[in-house]
């Protein structure tokens, strides 16, 4: 069940990973990330193990590593802090190429970067193999509170409507000689954002009205229930088993 259009984070395909039930994939991704987070930061080999595990999934799902790599750049703004830590932190120090670095800070920075990157890569793998629509279905089947899945469903649909509206407002502004690059014209942009908020709010009320008119009582009906076989669960949770073995091994070694 495709949403019928491409999403920048979704790579449509027919691999066994793509065909897996979404709730299995969501749970697997979540548990693998838990294992990554629970790994001691000095267990360098174990983190390599996780990367091999992810690479194996990419191979099965036919996702080019470069495709994932480009999308993982989103993480960059968040690692700035991690880069500063070796300079800022106190304790024992190490001289590298004339720079005095804190060992504790290096480890703390490494900890953030490696766990963050593995988390981002896992999420991207989930997003690449599961359409946004299926992700919601997976969350709904995992009994995530209805309010959250309803909000997410509406967001998925209306974000494009709102972007379209913002685009039309922008075109109408620049058609009347507005140049948003000039600082003193920022006021018009701010007012547009305000009016976009009001329009979206009013649309929200109209959507709610239209939902009520079709008998909405506060809970979304689950439209597609598909039973998942034991074999599918076992296959889908295989990466969790491997990750669990890795994290237990790391603690045992420590």
């Amino acid at each position: 069940m495709g949403a019928g259009h491409a999403h920048p984070l979704h790579l449509p395909g027919t691999s066994p990973v793509h065909r897996l039930a979404p709730q299995v994939k969501v749970l697997t991704a979540f548990l693998v990330v838990c294992c990554v987070v629970a790994t001691p930061r000095e267990a360098f080999g174990t983190f390599g193990g996780y990367l091999v595990l992810l690479a194996a999934v990419w191979a099965v799902a036919a996702i080019p590593p470069g495709w994932i790599g480009r999308r993982a750049l989103i993480e960059l703004p968040f690692v700035v802090l991690a880069v500063l830590l070796p300079f800022a932190q106190g304790g024992e120090r190490l001289d590298v190429a004339g720079l005095s670095l804190s060992i504790d800070g290096l480890l703390a920075g490494w900890n953030i970067i490696v766990k963050g990157t593995l988390g981002v890569l896992t999420s991207l793998t989930l997003a690449a193999t599961t359409s946004p629509r299926d992700l919601l279905l997976g969350l709904q089947r995992l009994r995530v509170p209805a309010t959250i899945t309803t909000i997410a469903t509406l967001m998925l649909r209306y974000v494009e409507v709102i972007i379209g509206e913002a685009r039309r407002m922008r075109i109408a502004r620049i058609s009347r000689g507005h140049d948003p690059r000039l600082l003193w014209q920022a006021g018009a942009v701010a007012r547009s954002v305000g009016s976009l908020f009001l329009r979206s709010y009013e649309r929200g009320e109209r959507v709610h009205l239209a939902m009520l008119a079709r008998g909405f009582t506060g809970a979304m009906p689950v439209l597609a229930e598909a039973p998942v076989t034991r074999r599918e669960w076992a296959l889908g949770l295989l990466p969790v088993g491997i990750a669990l073995a890795l994290v237990v091994g790391a603690w045992w070694a420590a």
């Binding site: 069940m1 949403a3 019928g4 946004p132 629509r133 919601l136 469903t153 509406l154 998925l156 649909r157 209306y158 409507v161 649309r203 109209r206 959507v207 009205l209 239209a210 939902m211 009520l212 008119a213 079709r214 008998g215 909405f216 009582t217 009906p221 439209l223």
Partner: peptide
């Protein structure tokens, strides 16, 4: 509300589900 079906003026207000089929099923499922 089952007996009165209102088609609102702006279809974007009415169609809120990710796919057409799900949207059409929303009312009868309710």
């Amino acid at each position: 509300r089952r007996r009165v079906g209102i088609v609102f003026q702006d279809p974007d207000d009415q169609l809120f589900m990710p796919t057409v089929a799900e949207d059409v099923a929303f009312g009868p499922a309710n």
